[in-house]
Amino acid sequence: MKRLMLAGTFSALATVVTAGDVAPDDVVYGEYGDVTASLSGVAGDPAAGKEIMVARGKGNCIACHQVTALEEYPFHGEVGPSLDGVGEYRTAEELRGILANPKMTYEGTIMPAFYRVSGFTRPGDAFTGKAAEGPLSPLLTAQEIEDVVAYLQTLTD
């Protein structure tokens, strides 16, 4: 029984951190919270990034951000700034860093870190309310981060 569960955990992890990914704890942040190297080594797909932005079980970025280009998806939040034009004034390196761990860019921000697995208080097992068992998975995979970065770069005025 125990062995089965462990095997399950490992295979779950394997789907998250695939070979070639930079592990969440190994991400190197620049002085302003930027991340230079691609997390997956594979170019991001903006179409996939768009899906992640609006999916409640994924990035759900519009929970907090208004994005005019995503108007067809209902209910954009007001907690963060509008992301219109963000591809114009932010570089890919900055966007990658903000997504991976925005606290490196904005101290104390409410925005969650999408590629971070340590340093939390009472981390849970997703939304069950129970304690997390075993290592945490990041909220988004390395490739999903790259996909969202690629989508954000299309947001130019």
Binding site: F75, G77, E78, V79, P112, F120, G124
Partner: peptide, 22 residues
């Protein structure tokens, strides 16, 4: 708390009056 790293204050003190999704 949690992997979203949010306190009660983040939502109910810093953001009351704002929409978070719906």
């Amino acid at each position: 708390t949690g992997q979203l790293d949010l306190s009660c204050a983040n939502c109910h003190e810093d953001n009351y009056g704002n929409y978070i999704r719906a």
